[in-house]
């Protein structure tokens, strides 16, 4: 009995060492595999955000980088800027308009794509094309189509009396914002489509067959089967679209550079202008931090609403 106990203690000891080593080496290897990702995040996301906060406490003329500590006065200045509040308002307008339009159009396209039996592959390719065509190409085509001399949409619009014959629509106080929303939605609606389409295709046909046998109409089938099934995905899509559109810089900048007279100057445009055209790097970083706070609120909603942690342990 005694010898047995000794033996088993020895065995336990040996095991506990290997177990500790084994666990450790497995954990180390696990962390090593994700280390590059962590480094990338640290380098490209965490550091810049920390740096932005730090820089926002200084006055930094970009051309002669001489840092002057000013505390929170950049934030005070931002909150006292009329252009900040107008950019926030325009940004909200751009975000809501784009998100609603993209949701409706994107969902509509997805439903059509899911139901048609002819040319589905072709039409899916068409939809993906809009998603994959680079923003700059979308912008170049738009600029060309709204060209005052020979733009096909310019001519169409002026013939319809929407704008004058010599008016560059994207440079028009009234039209600039709606057109930026429309052009952006041409490209980004498809995001909602693709998001929803995968989910739509995953709904088993037998659900509809069962409903048909019960005599459900198409509208009833959509309301009772399709919609509940894609609701979750739609919510994610709406939230992500809203976050992305609030932070949209490229398409607005390329189309209008925030003009005319600030009519399309959203927060990202204002921050960019402040940094690189008005030479106030510290002030721009204060704006970046404010945008980051908006992002963080969006992220918080995203995590609260969809609890991705649930997916994590699957």
């Amino acid at each position: 009995m005694a010898s047995e106990t000794v033996e088993s203690t020895a065995a336990t000891d040996r095991r506990s060492v290997t177990e500790r080593l084994g666990l450790d080496s497995e954990a180390i290897r696990g962390w090593l595999t994700v280390l590059p990702v962590i480094l990338l995040y640290l380098f490209v996301a965490v550091t810049p955000i920390a740096f932005a906060f730090y820089a926002s406490l200084f006055e930094i003329p970009l051309l002669a980088p001489e840092w002057t500590f000013t505390g929170f006065s950049n934030y005070v200045e931002v909150l006292n800027m009329g252009s900040f509040w107008s950019a926030l308002w325009l940004g909200g307008l751009f975000m809501v308009g784009s998100t609603v339009l993209q949701l409706l159009v994107g969902l509509w396209i997805a439903l059509v794509l899911n139901k048609i039996s002819y040319g589905q592959r072709f039409l899916t390719a068409v939809a993906f094309t809009a998603y994959l065509v680079p923003t700059v190409i979308v912008v170049l085509i738009a600029l060309f189509m709204f060209d005052v001399e020979i733009g096909v949409l310019h001519i169409a619009g002026s013939n319809l009396g929407l704008w004058g014959e010599r008016t560059f629509a994207l440079g028009d106080q009234t039209w600039a914002m709606p057109l930026v929303v429309l052009i952006g939605s041409w490209k980004f609606s498809i995001f909602v489509t693709i998001f929803t389409l995968a989910q739509l295709r995953a709904i088993p046909e037998r659900f509809y067959e069962a409903a048909k046998i019960c005599g459900a109409s198409r509208w009833e089938m959509f309301r009772d089967i399709t919609l509940p099934r894609i609701m979750g995905v739609l919510l994610i899509a709406v939230l992500l679209r809203a976050i992305f559109m609030f932070n949209k810089f490229d398409i607005i900048w390329m189309l209008t550079e925030g003009g005319p007279a600030g009519a399309t100057t959203t927060l990202p445009i204002l921050a960019y202008r402040t940094a690189f055209l008005e030479n106030s790097y510290g002030l721009a970083n204060a704006m970046a931090v404010i945008m980051f706070i908006f992002l963080a609120i969006g992220a918080y909603c995203y995590f609260r609403a969809f609890n991705p942690a649930k997916e994590v342990d699957t």
């Binding site: 088993s8 065995a11 336990t12 095991r15 290997t18 177990e19 084994g22």
Partner: peptide, 13 residues
């Protein structure tokens, strides 16, 4: 799995 080496016994040989 312990015999195969895909798992290690806590004790014993």
């Amino acid at each position: 799995r312990c015999v195969a080496g895909l798992d290690t016994p806590t004790s014993g040989t």
